[in-house]
């Protein structure tokens, strides 16, 4: 079976600096693919090119075997590529349930329905609640989203992108700015959708990546250093030197 998303020989230059240097990447259906690498490795730029916010200079991006390299961001969103941003952007005055309903209804026809009460409409309500259950927020459905904690707002964001029924989900550092408890909850939530949702994950934290990912791509200075299963990456010498070596050294120093 061909991969869901395939990036071939992608190149992006900002002036003299090459931030994406001939990167190859594939995402299979239902897998969690993590991209790791030190700061400035070009992870977020790569993700922006997949989402369509930045145009690559060379290379192709295939989604379900169709070339989407020149498609605009909203057209890619319509195909089912959803991006969750680092910055939280929920609707603060609306309740948690309303937030998810808004995300869900955008995929369910037009909104020029003036009469029927949307809060008692069983279809839109039960669907929204099922997404809240998946992220563990069903007990907060009547709370205004703006009063949730940062971690809960991130959980709500996940529910909202899931409610859009994407084929692939692009997550840019989902645990950024979270405390240990919130991080643990987010990791548990993401492992809960593992296997059902194709996911591209950009992440700093190695523990998170090892817990979640099926496959890992390591990037350094815009190029792919290695790509493979979690075990292969753990054993890879080049990766150890370039990236994990530091961390290992750090652990030894801490010990």
């Amino acid at each position: 079976m061909p991969p869901l998303l395939e990036v071939r020989q992608l190149v992006k230059r900002f002036g003299a600096m090459t931030v994406t240097a001939s990167v190859d990447l594939t995402i299979e259906r239902g897998e969690i693919h993590a991209v790791i690498g030190p700061n400035g490795a070009g992870k977020t730029t790569l993700m922006s090119q997949i989402a369509g916010e930045i145009k690559p200079d060379e290379g192709t991006i295939l989604f379900e075997e169709a070339d989407i390299t020149s498609l605009a961001a909203h057209a890619r969103a319509a195909l089912g590529i959803a991006r969750m941003f680092q910055i939280t952007r929920v609707f603060p005055a609306s309740t948690v349930l309303e937030n998810v309903m808004l995300a869900h209804l955008s995929t369910r026809g037009h909104g020029f329905r003036f009469w029927k009460n949307v809060h008692t409409d069983r279809d839109s309500r039960s669907a929204a609640i099922s997404f809240l259950q998946r992220v563990g927020l069903e007990s907060r459905q009547e709370t205004p989203a703006g009063t949730l904690s940062h971690g809960e707002q991130r959980q709500l964001e996940v529910a909202m992108v899931l409610a859009g029924d994407p084929k692939v989900l692009l997550l840019d550092e989902p645990t950024a700015g979270m405390g240990p408890e919130e991080t643990a909850r987010m990791v548990a939530l993401l492992s809960g959708i593992k296997g059902q949702q194709s996911l591209l994950l950009v992440e700093h934290d190695m523990q998170t990546v090892y817990q979640l990912a099926d496959r890992v791509t390591v990037m350094v200075y815009g190029r792919t250093l290695a790509s493979g299963t979690v075990e292969e990456i753990r054993r890879n010498e080049a990766v150890r030197e370039a990236y994990l070596g530091d961390e290992k050294g750090q652990e030894e120093r801490d010990a």
Partner: peptide
Amino acid sequence: SRFGLILG
């Protein structure tokens, strides 16, 4: 209604 939700 759904319209009102979207408006909000």
